[in-house]
Design a protein around this nucleic acid. Structure first.
Length: 188
DNA sequence: CTTTCGATGATCT
DNA sequence: GATCATCGAAAGG
């Protein structure tokens, strides 16, 4: 029995959980989501914590849209915007298990190492061809397609990666025992 | 295998 | 001027 698509009317922790196992495709290229992180409103680690700026404006947009930003001046990162509306909550996609358009992703990434193709938020964006033009985009075909899990999903839960605030929050979610994660995750 | 560190430049204060 | 939701190469065990 398979799962359901996320309900973007819920908060980012619930959306981050339910995105695991879904398939994300950008123009038919992508794979199964195996790692996500929740960034809540009122969350010190979130870009939205200090209010709207030009960069994070899309984060305050409607649930079910994308927030795409440039990290460290070099890597694009893709988020799903969710509830509460106008408060700046989102889910970062950190890793995919490549399933569709692998040859395209290998060219974009410059490697044929399947495990490393989409292992990290910057890698995901590079493999899928994401950039600023997707910032604020609605999650809908043909550009952005999200498919529900085909099987039951078992989760691992741990702390978020690469942040210096609110580090104790267990808001990182992964497909249990996946080989395609950006880094190891704590067993919970 | 793990840890460290430099690149890199947009963004915000 | 400081920070940064990263990456990958290099160095160390």
């Amino acid at each position: 029995m398979g799962g359901a698509l996320p309900n973007f009317e819920l908060g980012p922790v619930e959306v981050a959980r339910s995105l695991i196992g879904c398939t994300l495709l950008i123009h038919d290229v992508g794979g199964r989501i195996v790692e996500t992180e929740a960034y809540d409103f009122n969350d010190e680690a979130s870009h939205s914590f200090r209010g709207v700026t030009p960069r994070n404006k899309a984060m305050f947009g409607p649930p079910g849209t994308a927030y795409v930003y440039l990290s460290y001046g070099l890597h694009w990162c893709f988020n799903f915007v969710c509830r509460p509306v106008g408060q700046g909550a989102a889910v970062l996609v950190r890793a995919l298990e490549p399933t569709d358009g692998v040859a395209t992703m290998e060219i974009r990434r410059g490697t044929t190492d399947l495990r490393r193709l989409c292992a990290g938020p910057g890698c995901v964006a590079q493999a899928l061809g994401l950039d600023r033009s997707f910032d604020g985009a609605v999650i809908q075909p043909p550009a952005i397609e999200l498919l529900p899990p085909r099987m039951e999903v078992e989760l691992s839960i741990g702390r978020r990666v690469g942040i210096s605030k609110a580090v104790e929050q267990p808001w990182r979610f992964a497909l249990k025992d996946s080989r395609f994660l950006s880094r190891r995750i704590a067993l919970v």
